[in-house]
Design a protein around this nucleic acid. Sequence first.
RNA 1: GGGGGUGUAGCUCAGUUUGGUUAGAGCGCUGGCCUGUCAAGCCGGAGGUCGCGAGUUCGAGUCUCGUCACUCCCGCCA
Length: 602
Amino acid sequence: MHKHRTHNCSELSPKEVGQQARLTGWVSRRRDHGGVLFLDLRDHYGSTQCVFRSQSPHFSRAESIRMESVITVTGSVVKRSPETINANIPTGEVELVVEDMLVVTESAYIPFSIGDESDEASDSLRLQYRFLDLRRTKMQNNIKFRHKSLQSIRNHMGKQGFLEIQTPILTASSPEGSRDFLIPSRLHPGKFYALPQAPQIYKQLLMTSGFDKYFQIAACFRDEDARADRAPGEFYQLDMEMSFVEQADVHHAIETLVDGWFSELATSTFDKPPFQHITHKEAMDKYGSDKPDLRNPLIIQNATSCFEKSGFKIFAQTIEKGGIVLGIVVPNVASKPRSFFDKMNDWARENGAPGLGYIIYDNELKGPIANTLEKERHDHIIKTLSLKDGDAAFFICSTNHFWAKDFAGKVRLELGERADLVDKNAIRICWIVDFPLYESGETWFSAWREPTPEERKTIYFSHNPFSMPQCDPEEFSSLDPLSLNAWQYDLVCNGMELGSGAIRNHHPELLVKCFQVPGYTEAQVRQDFKSLLSAFSYGAPPHGGCALGVDRIIMMLANMHNIREIIAFPKNQNAMDVLLGAPNNVPEQLLKDVFIKSTAKK
RNA sequence: GGGGGUGUAGCUCAGUUUGGUUAGAGCGCUGGCCUGUCAAGCCGGAGGUCGCGAGUUCGAGUCUCGUCACUCCCGCCA
């Protein structure tokens, strides 16, 4: 008989009844009846009930064994009597009557329960004892789920002819983007490698090398702060790039992948390809966001004309000063109690708005605002907003149009939640397309603060500086930069950005011109993007691609609400690994080897 | 860098609004009972620097100030 096991803990079934079997696993639960003792033995695959009777020489040892100890049990597989069958587990029709037992390794007292899934430990404790936390069925399933997702990605990309090509982890610091992680060089005193924020430049170089279709499940490193859906420090992207393609070709490749992957693993219904296209402008106008949650049916409308020169003085005066009024119509809430509307107003004030006006349509227009409006205006409002009986409309008004749109987007989400209009069991996917290539300081800053006059005049890249402008390269210089869109797209799902991509600018001269608009000099661009411009000067294929946030998508598909749940060894909020103690101090000699002296205050 | 929340037994939490006797519960641990449970049950026991430090007070888990940790959000993430 095998030293450790003849079966795993989910294998025994009525087929094995009468056989001798050996199992090794962790003691998960104990039910001690004095004369008979049940131990649930658990491994990666499942759980099996092991029975000890008081006559057994191992009975008292089994009674005292600590939870989470590893034991080997040998005995006969017995069919359970009908009334003792446990239908909740696959091995529930049988049990192992133990004849021999070996304590392999005894566990110390465990800091939190593992067998009892209802007992949730705090996040910091779970991370401190991650090796125990990972024993839990939920985490075993999540990590298994992640594996299946990675397999699925490789399968669907491979089937489409994409080559998986690995790119360097030790690379050069890039001037664009987020903060780099730096690695000091021993062989080159005073110089540094950087960890890649993404394999962006390498994948474009691969295209110029003729590889045609590339993908990689790439580790990316960015020294930025965490969020619930964003791991600090390191994360994985499905990075892909293809040559001789237009936007539609990249979309098709990604849609084929997503459709295949989600078909295998999603537990909710999801949009089938082709995914709908929403232009960036439409997204901002209708949803107040460039990552709209389409599960929420509410849309933002321009309601300025409803209040122009009206009896509702606050709005009328704001409009006089160039302001805007945005309205959101919510169906079937007219009968809600007054508190529903008051609480929305309170919420708006807590979130930085002067207030939130509303009108109720219950046979006629009602509410504090409606009373100030001339009767002959009522029809116009009903028509403009397409109000139906039972609707209520909420209004955001400001002279700052950018703030108004942004805030209306937040109101839209809040109303969707409070009126319970969001279909939580759906996965709604869209492409946001036609991003502006540039933004003025006006829009760049206005949503959260007043820009200085200097900033107002400045032009910024709005998204990805390497994107191809939607214009004839010859005409670029003669066009208003702020009127230009880029071949740039985001994949958006349930209000989350799942990925982003673009048709790249592969013309070296045009690339230089694009960078000159926000103020780079030609010399600076040629210096900063030397390798890319050099490669493009030797025959660059038109190319484009996309990168999807793998962790975030797996989190969503696994119905988890924190990215740590689907990462085996995640960092905490402060980017620390509390299990291994990273980052930590290193011996002085290691610093000397790489010519580093710390200036950190003790 | 900024804002919110949390911090009480090994774990999860109640108690803090309105300061007042010996700080409680469930799970776990531990001693005993129990031959069919699967969140086993019953009886008993141990277990506390109320995150830490100051302050107010006759008296602080509770109020004030500071500080630390964790967490969520804003900034940031081309």
